[in-house]
Design a protein around this nucleic acid. Structure first.
Lengths: 340, 340
DNA sequence: CTGAAAGCGCTTACAG
DNA sequence: CTGAAAGCGCTTACAG
C-alpha cells in the first residue's frame, strides 16, 4: 500500500523518545527491564506517532509468526460456526492470530498463492480431508506443529487428533431406543467412508445391537452420506424395497431432516410408526418436528481443545496423541419420549 | 520455531540453480522475463529443496501483505457460515489470505496482541459494531482500504458499505400479508437500534402500511432484538396485554422461532389465527413448523461482494459508496399460503 | 535476460 | 539498564 505520508517506524519512535530502537523494542515486548521513566517517554512517543509495529518485520526478525492456521475442506454446515468460535477464542486468548484457508475452492492459475504452512504460521489445525498425506508428512517431518480434527493420523506419523466419543455416544442412543422404546428393527444410515466419525458410529451401532442380543440385519443399513438429500433418497429406497424398520438412526442431524421428509411423504408417523434419532445436536435439531433426539457433540470445545494442544506443541510441549471429547444423549421427542 | 535442519531460503535455491537470488525471485513472482532454461533450473532446485518463500520477508520487502482482515463482534448465528464462505472464496480467488479476528472476546492483559490493521493486512472488512469510530477514522485517514458490512459509514467518512434491500424486501413481505391474506393488524418486532438492518425494515413496514392506507398502530410494535428469547418474551407480552394481531413480522428468522413457541403456548394456530413471517431465510427456516415465509438475504454474496470491493480499493480503484444487494420474497406456509 | 546491492522494519546477542 | 550492529529473507530499482 502506498500511503501519502509514510507510516511511522520504530526508528521514528526511538528518535522522538531520544532512545535507541533496541530500547523501543524492549518496552514493546517487555523483553528486558527498562527504567520507568524511559518506558514512559517511549510510550508517549508511540501514542503521539500512532505507531504500530509491522508484523512482517517482527516475524522476520523473531522467526515466530504468532499465527495459527486453520485448514478446512470448505466452510459450511451447522458445524462450522461453533468450531470456528472455539478456535478463534482459544487463539485470541493465547495471543495468536488466526489465518483461515479453504482447500476445496478453485484457485486461478498463476495467482501467487501460498497455502498455509511453515512459511506463514507457527502451527496448523487440519480438518478432515483438507491436506494430503504427502504434505502432512512433510510438515510433520520438519517438526512443524500439527493437530488433526476428526481425522486419524496417517500411518506411523503420530500427529495428535481431537475427536469425540462417537462409539459410546451411539451405543447410548441405540440402547435408549431398545431399552426404553422396545425398538427391534433399527435402520442405520452410514456416512462417508473416509469419515472416521461415521466409522465409529457404525461400531457403536453394532455394539449396541450385540449388547442387547439383537442380530445385525444388513438390509437395515444404507448409505446416507451425512447429507440431507442422500439420506432422503436412502430412506425412500429402504421403504420402497419393503424393508421394515421401527426406528432409524440417520447418522447425523442433517440426514435426519431428509429422513423426516421421506417419512412424512410416506405417511409414516414419527415417532409412533418410526422413531428417528440423529447425532451432533446442531442448532436446528430442537426446531424440527418432532424435536430431534440426538447426541450432543461439544463442537466448540473441539475447536478450543485443538488450539490448546497446538499452542502447547508450538511451545515445545508434549500432548496426548488422541483426545476424545465426551458426548451426551439429548432426549427430545422423535424417539418417542414425551418431553416438553 | 526452531527446526533441527534450517529451512531453505532463496539463497539456497539460487546457489543450487547457479543463479542470483534476484532471478529466483523473478521466476517465483513472474515479475520479469526469465529464460525458459533458467526457469527450469530454478524450479527444479525449488522442488528438490522443498523451498517455500517466507511470507514475512516477502511482505517486508514488498510492503504488501496479500492478506485481508475480517473483523467481527463474534462468530455466531446462522449468518456466519455463509458470509464467511463468501469472503474466504473471494479472497482465495484473488490470491489473498484471510485473517479473522473477533472483537468481543476477552484478551488477557499483556499478551502481545495486535488487532488487525495496517501493520498486518492490506485492507479490512468490518462487521457492525466490531471497531470503534476512532480507529475507523484513523484507518480511513491514512488511506487504509476499508469496507463496512451492514453498518453505515460514520459521519463524513465515506467508507463503502455493503447491505441488502431491507426496506423493499420488507415492503414486499408486508404487502403479501395485506394483499393476499387480507391481514390488517400486523405486529412488528424491532431489532437492536444500532442495527441498520432493523431500521430499514421498520421503514419498509411503515411504508407498506401507508401504501395500503392502513394506519400505524404503535401498540403493534415491540422490541424483539433479533433474538429468539427476547422475541419469545415480546410475543407473550403482546398477547398478555390483550393486543390483537392477525399477523406478525418478527424482524428476522431467529426471532420467528421464539414467536412460534409463544404462539404455540398460547394455543394460537399458525397461520390460521396468526400469520408469522421472518427475514433472512437462514437454513433452518424451511424446517420450522410451519415452514417460514421470509425474505431471502444473499448472505454469501454479501461476503463475496465485500471482498471484491475491498480488493478493488486495495488496487487503488474506486468503488460505490453503498451497495444494496437484492432480497427476495420466499413464500412458504407460515403466512397462510398452501405450498408443498 | 541477469546480477550486485540497498533496503524493508524489526529482534537479539554482545558489550558496556 | 542501554546502545551499536548484525541479521532475518525477501523485492526492487539500477546497471549492464
Amino acid at each position: 500500500m502506498t500511503l501519502p505520508n509514510r507510516q511511522p517506524t520504530i526508528a521514528d519512535v526511538a528518535q522522538k523518545a531520544g532512545v535507541s530502537i533496541a530500547t523501543v523494542s524492549r518496552v514493546l515486548n517487555r523483553t528486558a527491564p527498562v527504567t520507568e521513566e524511559t518506558t514512559q517517554r517511549v510510550q508517549t512517543a508511540i501514542e503521539e506517532l500512532n505507531y504500530r509495529p509491522r508484523s512482517a518485520a517482527r516475524v522476520l526478525a523473531s522467526r515466530k509468526t504468532y499465527t495459527i492456521g486453520l485448514l478446512l475442506p470448505e466452510i459450511s454446515g451447522p458445524f462450522f460456526s461453533p468450531m470456528m468460535r472455539g478456535i478463534e477464542a482459544g487463539a485470541a486468548e493465547a495471543g495468536f492470530d488466526l489465518l483461515v484457508h479453504t482447500t476445496n475452492v478453485p484457485r486461478p492459475e498463476g495467482t501467487p498463492h501460498r497455502p498455509l504452512g511453515e512459511h506463514n504460521t507457527d502451527g496448523l489445525i487440519v480438518f478432515t480431508d483438507s491436506l494430503d498425506t504427502k504434505e502432512l508428512t512433510r510438515l510433520h517431518r520438519i517438526g512443524f506443529p500439527l493437530v488433526l480434527l476428526h481425522q486419524p493420523s496417517p500411518e506411523s506419523l503420530d500427529i495428535p487428533t481431537i475427536t469425540v466419543e462417537n462409539k459410546s455416544g451411539t451405543e447410548k442412543l441405540i440402547s435408549h431406543l431398545i431399552e426404553v422404546h422396545g425398538k427391534r428393527q433399527i435402520a442405520f444410515l452410514r456416512g462417508p467412508d473416509t469419515h472416521m466419525d461415521s466409522t465409529w458410529r457404525e461400531r457403536g451401532y453394532l455394539q449396541a445391537l450385540k449388547t442387547h442380543n439383537l442380530s445385525f440385519d444388513p438390509t437395515l443399513m444404507a448409505y446416507g452420506g451425512f447429507n440431507e438429500q442422500i439420506a432422503f433418497a436412502a430412506a425412500k429406497q429402504l421403504m420402497g424395497e419393503g424393508v421394515m424398520f421401527d426406528a432409524i438412526f440417520t447418522g447425523d442431524d442433517e440426514s435426519a431432516v431428509g429422513v423426516l421428509s421421506a417419512l412424512r411423504q410416506a405417511n409414516k408417523r414419527v415417532p409412533e410408526d418410526v422413531a428417528v434419532v440423529g447425532f451432533d445436536d446442531v442448532p436446528f435439531s430442537s426446531y424440527l418436528t418432532p424435536p430431534l433426539t440426538t447426541v450432543r457433540v461439544p463442537i466448540e470445545q473441539v475447536g478450543s481443545e485443538a488450539v490448546h494442544q497446538l499452542i502447547c506443541l508450538i511451545r515445545g510441549g508434549q500432548v496426548d496423541l488422541e483426545v476424545l471429547l465426551p458426548t451426551e444423549l439429548v432426549i427430545r421427542q422423535s424417539c418417542g419420549c414425551q418431553t416438553t
